[in-house]
Design a protein around this nucleic acid. Structure first.
Length: 268
DNA sequence: ACACTAACCTGCAAGC
DNA sequence: TGCTTGCAGGTTAGTG
């Protein structure tokens, strides 16, 4: 669920229900997440109006009249709109209750996500690289920051200080699309290839967001259907299967504790 | 500054 | 069937 396109899809799905709404209360059943849910958050947000919502990296931000709530979905988190009185499912940890009778429910089996409130800027948003879908991210940026770096290119582009929002799936896909082996040293890739890589990162993220529309309704309706983009993955999750371009058996290796699938013929 | 590892936690699938 | 092992969309903290 929680790739940048999923977070963006979630944002678009819940915004119409939340923007301008007034918070009646927040119920925290399980405060033990990646970081403890901000102590006293109940008293801080109750009665406030939601001014706006936004996304930065994979964080979702709910802006209040005073302060903001910063939500991360971790590896297994999701948000959905429920009606008052809807039964709680296992791993539903937090409910943001609105005066409208609707609520935003936070669900996260592995509890790697977070839900924080702060009156000040959140430190988690410090030192983040550019958004991949803006003009501030391009091949020149990757090229400049990679000079002298020996780290493999895949963990390099997955580093939030370099560029945000490129997770294991889309890093794998973009590297395949560009024909770059995931274990190639980041500092030994030419500018032209980084320009192609940046273009492909934008392309794959954009396409995934476009198809998030299907997932969007799932979130709102809480039907739990799987993501639609999954059907178009070229290498991620396909180790041992044939490359869709040259039919060579796709290989898998671990880089930075992440499985990386690639084609030894198409990627150099 | 950089490269790399362990850790957080639950669920699920594969292997024995 | 039941137990063990390893892996999963992320990020930080700690080690050299």
């Amino acid at each position: 669920m929680p790739e940048l396109p999923e977070v963006e899809t979630t944002l678009r799905g819940v915004t119409p229900w939340l923007k301008g709404a007034k918070i009646a209360a927040i119920a925290v059943r399980q405060p033990s997440l990646r970081w403890p849910v901000t102590p006293g958050i109940e008293h801080q947000v109750a009665g406030q109006t939601i001014v706006d919502l936004s996304r930065r990296a994979k964080y979702l931000c709910i802006h209040l009249q005073r302060g903001s709530m910063l939500i991360h979905l971790g590896m297994s988190g999701s948000l959905r709109i429920v009606s008052a009185g809807d039964e709680w499912r296992k791993h539903d940890h937090i409910e943001l209750q609105l005066t409208s009778g609707r609520s935003l429910r936070y669900h996260d089996p592995r509890r790697f996500g977070s839900w924080l409130w702060s009156e000040q800027a959140h430190w988690q948003l410090q030192n983040l690289g550019p958004e991949p879908l803006t003009e501030y991210f391009d091949g020149e940026h990757l090229y400049a920051l990679s000079r002298g770096r020996k780290v493999a290119v895949k963990p390099f582009v997955m580093t939030n200080a370099i560029v945000v929002g490129v997770g294991n799936i889309y890093a794998s896909e973009a590297l395949f699309m560009t024909g770059i082996r995931p274990d190639r040293s980041a500092g030994r890739i030419a500018l032209a290839r980084y320009q192609q890589l940046a273009t492909n990162i934008k392309s794959v993220l954009t396409r995934a967001i476009e198809q998030g529309g299907t997932t969007l309704r799932d979130f709102v309706n809480s039907s739990g259907a799987p993501g639609y983009f999954q059907q178009q993955l070229l290498v991620y999750g396909r180790a041992g299967q044939n490359c869709l371009v040259c039919h060579t058996t796709l290989r898998e290796q671990r880089l930075g504790q992440r499985s990386s699938v690639y084609c030894i013929e198409c990627q150099r």
